[in-house]
Each structure stands twice: as C-alpha cells, then as structure tokens.
Amino acid sequence: MAAGGDHGSPDSYRSPLASRYASPEMCFVFSDRYKFRTWRQLWLWLAEAEQTLGLPITDEQIQEMKSNLENIDFKMAAEEEKRLRHDVMAHVHTFGHCCPKAAGIIHLGATSCYVGDNTDLIILRNALDLLLPKLARVISRLADFAKERASLPTLGFTHFQPAQLTTVGKRCCLWIQDLCMDLQNLKRVRDDLRFRGVKGTTGTQASFLQLFEGDDHKVEQLDKMVTEKAGFKRAFIITGQTYTRKVDIEVLSVLASLGASVHKICTDIRLLANLKEMEEPFEKQQIGSSAMPYKRNPMRSERCCSLARHLMTLVMDPLQTASVQWFERTLDDSANRRICLAEAFLTADTILNTLQNISEGLVVYPKVIERRIRQELPFMATENIIMAMVKAGGSRQDCHEKIRVLSQQAASVVKQEGGDNDLIERIQVDAYFSPIHSQLDHLLDPSSFTGRASQQVQRFLEEEVYPLLKPYESVMKVKAELCL
C-alpha cells in the first residue's frame, strides 16, 4: 500500500493539533497551500530580480507567473513527485505547466533550498508574528487579574506546605514575570531571523556568478533584492546548502521555554482548584465526569500541561538535527523538520489560546482563602504575639514557653481530632496574655502579614508589564474561544 493518505478522510490519521486544537490561522501558515504558494512567490521574486539585473526574462513571463501564483494543481504535483521522487522539481514542473512561456526560467540558477529553506524562514517569521500578540493578550488578562487582587491576602506555599502570606495578585505576578520573559525572547528570536537568500547549491553562489558572467556586484544585488522582497532586513552571508540548523534550535528553545512557563502556571491553577481557592472557567453544560456528576475538573489547565510537556520535548529534535548536518548538509534534517517545526508552533498556539481562555474567566473564592488563612495564621502570628507581650512588660522566655504549650495543644486538636485551630481562643482565655487581649485582632490582621506584596504588584505592572504590552494595544480586544 502506498504511503500517505487522504487526510480529510475519517479513515486516515490526522494530527489532533490540526484537527482538534490549533487555530485556523496557525494551521494555514503550515498548510501545503501556504507552503507551495510561497515557493511560487519566491520563484517570481527571483525572476523579477534577475530581470532587473539584466537576464533575458520578459515582462510577459513575469506576468504569467504572477497570474498563476494561486493556480496550484495539487493532484498534478503529487503525481509528479511520485514520478520524480523530488518535491521541488515536482512543483517546478507543475508551475511550468500553467506558465508555459515562463517554464524555462522558473528556478533559474537556484537549488531546492532556495524555495525550501527560504519558505521555512518566512513561515517561522509569520508563525512567530501570530504567537506574539496571543502571548501579549494572556499577559494582559493576567495583569488585569493581578491588579484587581493585588491586596487580597492568601496563604503562600513553599514545598506545598503553608508559608508566609502573600497576595493573590502577587502570586499571579510570578506567572506574568515568566511570560514577559517569554514574550521578550519570542520577539528577540523573531527579529534575529535572517533570510537564507540566493546562495546556490553549497552556499557559494557559483551558479549565479556564472549567470551574471562573473559580476560579483550583481550577485550581491540579486541576494539583497530577493531578501528585501521577502520582507527581511538581512540575509546570511555564510550558508551551506541550507541555512544553519542552529536557527531551528533557537526558535524551538524559546517555544519550549514558553511551554515550561505555561505548565507551571496551569499546575498552580490545578492545585488551587483542589484547594477550592480558584477555578478555571466551567461552562453551564460542561460535564466533569461521566460517573461523578459533582466533579469540576480543571480540564483546560490539564490540557495545557499535557501539550506543554510535548512542546518542551520537541527542542531535542533540532538539537540532534543540527549535530548531524555533515559538511554542507545531509538530508537527516528533512523529514524531522517537516514534523517538529509545525508541531512546535501548533502546540504553542494551542496552549496560548487555551491559557487566554482560562485567564479571561478565572474565578476566585475569597471566603475559602480566608478560612485557610484562619487555619494557619495563628501559628504564624506567634512571633508577633511574643513581641507584643514583651512590649507590655512580659518575659520573652516565659511567653515563648506559654505559646509553645498552647500551640501544641491547638495542633493536637487540628491533627488528632480534625478540629479547627483554636490557638487564639486559648490565648484569649489565658490570664497571662490579658495585657494584649485587646491587640489580638490587630495582630491577626492578614494584611499585616503580606509585606509589600501589593506595592510590588503595582510597581511591576507599571514599570515592566504595561510598557512591554504597549506595541500590542491594537490587538488586545480579541477574545479566545474554545470549541473543545
């Protein structure tokens, strides 16, 4: 049975990233139509530049190519590739079939990587351009969430054990800070992308030097003109047959890092959902379990974690691919890159769409948070109580021993009897502590235990987050809708 299948058929496997999760716009960027249309555009740009620099290419040939950029006979191309065992030459023939007058000058002087690699770089750039505003929107939604809850005390956790208090907004800023680093890295790697350009079979530009009869300047002009037509500021000066596969490492490393950030955020949300302090959106008709109707599973956060793990592992592909590119190139890269580049971007696209949807509907339960604080705060307040007693004339050592005994009794009630923490009640009825009984409410005010959390939130948002989001103001209103 021949390899390949009808990918629109229910009898043929289709990647869930495309069929179930990723956005239509990201799927289109990695589609065959987008790819092969870009090949034709690159052939047109090459012909236009070659004509401008004096090669015998007519206006009629150029116009014929322009008129057929979208006229792609995919069936013919597939048949040609089956016959020739070469995808680029299959599309040269297919393009030439609908451009008979231009057929002889299509791909003039070029090698397969002229269309293959340059198209990949265009796709990487455009895919990054799709991700950047999506990530900015996630940051914006979380920034709104953090600002609104900047002063809401909550129990902090280290080692997932109760620690000092923080605020809900401050905790959210930990998430935002990681995503801001990801946004900066995505922008950097996007701006650092260079075009492969017009380089020939081993990167020496020998074929173009021959076409222009040894004119170095025209060869350099050709490279520059096509690079500018493709919208790049610069091209690699040095290439082998391909652009260095280190570029793929750079791009997928940034995406993998984004995956790590999203995994951490969504894990926190899942843990908070278990504590009943916070939940992701839950639709009115949504079913959490087929057997347990009360369940409210954090399905979206779980999906993000599941896909983020996949995204983090994909960076190993370009690392290994770059390491086995012998001399000017081997074909070890080809099949692998067809999979890992598309999957990385479709996965990143999915987790950003999902995280935006989550961040637009996060639900906080202040009463649950308050109750958990009441359970733990008495123990945390013991040092403040000791200091207040010393100020009232008591002995630190005597007070410490009193607190120690009462704390152990209260802990026994919590752990052995399943009761509430009654340390404060014990202190309130103990005559030894009568000098500070009137101060206990103040000493137990949760806001006095959150330090500068709310001020940190305000400063972080104003100095770091809002300036970073400013270039994306025009796209901030787009909502994230999930079908599944």
Results as ranks from 00 to 15, higher is better:
residue 2 A to S: 13
residue 3 A to Y: 11
residue 7 H to E: 06
residue 8 G to R: 12
residue 9 S to L: 13
residue 12 S to Y: 15
residue 13 Y to Q: 15
residue 21 Y to C: 04
residue 23 S to W: 11
residue 25 E to L: 12
residue 28 F to P: 05
residue 30 F to G: 01
residue 30 F to C: 14
residue 39 W to K: 01
residue 48 E to G: 02
residue 48 E to R: 08
residue 51 Q to L: 06
residue 55 L to S: 05
residue 55 L to H: 07
residue 57 I to G: 02
residue 58 T to S: 07
residue 58 T to C: 03
residue 59 D to P: 07
residue 60 E to R: 09
residue 63 Q to V: 02
residue 78 A to H: 04
residue 85 R to A: 02
residue 85 R to N: 03
residue 86 H to L: 01
residue 89 M to C: 04
residue 92 V to I: 14
residue 94 T to C: 05
residue 95 F to V: 08
residue 102 A to K: 00
residue 107 H to C: 13
residue 108 L to A: 10
residue 116 G to T: 13
residue 118 N to L: 02
residue 123 I to H: 15
residue 129 D to E: 11
residue 130 L to Q: 06
residue 130 L to G: 08
residue 131 L to R: 02
residue 137 R to G: 12
residue 139 I to K: 06
residue 141 R to I: 02
residue 142 L to A: 07
residue 142 L to C: 09
residue 150 A to D: 09
residue 152 L to G: 05
residue 152 L to F: 01
residue 156 G to V: 02
residue 159 H to E: 09
residue 166 T to W: 00
residue 166 T to H: 04
residue 168 V to Y: 09
residue 169 G to R: 02
residue 170 K to G: 05
residue 176 I to F: 01
residue 178 D to S: 13
residue 179 L to A: 15
residue 182 D to Y: 03
residue 183 L to F: 00
residue 185 N to F: 06
residue 190 R to L: 13
residue 191 D to N: 08
residue 192 D to H: 05
residue 193 L to H: 00
residue 194 R to P: 14
residue 196 R to W: 05
residue 200 G to I: 08
residue 202 T to I: 04
residue 204 T to P: 01
residue 205 Q to T: 08
residue 206 A to K: 14
residue 206 A to N: 08
residue 206 A to H: 06
residue 209 L to T: 08
residue 213 E to Y: 12
residue 213 E to R: 14
residue 214 G to W: 13
residue 215 D to E: 14
residue 216 D to K: 12
residue 219 V to C: 06
residue 223 D to W: 01
residue 226 V to W: 00
residue 232 F to C: 03
residue 232 F to K: 00
residue 234 R to G: 12
residue 241 Q to L: 01
residue 241 Q to R: 03
residue 242 T to A: 07
residue 243 Y to T: 11
residue 244 T to G: 13
residue 245 R to P: 01
residue 245 R to C: 02
residue 246 K to Y: 00
residue 247 V to C: 15
residue 250 E to H: 02
residue 253 S to Y: 10
residue 254 V to W: 07
residue 255 L to W: 04
residue 255 L to S: 06
residue 262 V to S: 11
residue 264 K to I: 01
residue 264 K to L: 03
residue 266 C to F: 09
residue 272 L to H: 07
residue 276 K to D: 05
residue 279 E to F: 05
residue 282 F to A: 01
residue 283 E to D: 05
residue 283 E to M: 13
residue 284 K to E: 05
residue 287 I to R: 02
residue 287 I to S: 08
residue 287 I to H: 09
residue 292 M to T: 00
residue 295 K to D: 04
residue 299 M to A: 13
residue 310 H to E: 00
residue 312 M to N: 00
residue 312 M to K: 06
residue 318 P to H: 00
residue 319 L to Q: 03
residue 319 L to G: 02
residue 322 A to M: 12
residue 322 A to G: 09
residue 323 S to H: 00
residue 326 W to C: 02
residue 328 E to G: 05
residue 330 T to D: 00
residue 332 D to K: 01
residue 332 D to G: 01
residue 333 D to C: 04
residue 334 S to R: 03
residue 334 S to Y: 01
residue 336 N to P: 03
residue 337 R to V: 02
residue 341 L to T: 10
residue 347 T to H: 15
residue 348 A to N: 04
residue 349 D to R: 04
residue 349 D to V: 05
residue 350 T to N: 11
residue 352 L to A: 07
residue 352 L to M: 08
residue 353 N to M: 09
residue 355 L to K: 00
residue 364 V to E: 03
residue 368 V to D: 02
residue 373 I to V: 11
residue 373 I to L: 11
residue 374 R to V: 07
residue 376 E to L: 02
residue 380 M to F: 15
residue 384 N to Q: 10
residue 384 N to W: 06
residue 384 N to T: 12
residue 384 N to G: 05
residue 387 M to S: 14
residue 388 A to D: 04
residue 388 A to V: 04
residue 389 M to H: 12
residue 394 G to I: 04
residue 395 S to K: 08
residue 397 Q to E: 14
residue 398 D to T: 13
residue 405 V to C: 07
residue 406 L to P: 02
residue 409 Q to Y: 13
residue 411 A to R: 10
residue 415 K to P: 04
residue 423 L to Q: 03
residue 428 Q to S: 08
residue 433 F to S: 04
residue 434 S to L: 11
residue 434 S to T: 12
residue 437 H to C: 07
residue 437 H to Y: 13
residue 438 S to T: 15
residue 438 S to C: 09
residue 439 Q to E: 13
residue 442 H to G: 10
residue 443 L to E: 01
residue 444 L to P: 02
residue 450 T to G: 05
residue 450 T to Q: 14
residue 451 G to N: 00
residue 454 S to I: 14
residue 454 S to K: 14
residue 459 R to A: 11
residue 460 F to C: 09
residue 461 L to G: 07
residue 462 E to D: 13
residue 465 V to L: 12
residue 467 P to K: 10
residue 468 L to G: 10
residue 473 E to G: 14
residue 474 S to Y: 15
residue 474 S to V: 14
residue 475 V to N: 12
residue 476 M to W: 15
residue 478 V to T: 05
residue 479 K to V: 14
residue 480 A to S: 15
residue 482 L to Y: 13
residue 482 L to W: 13
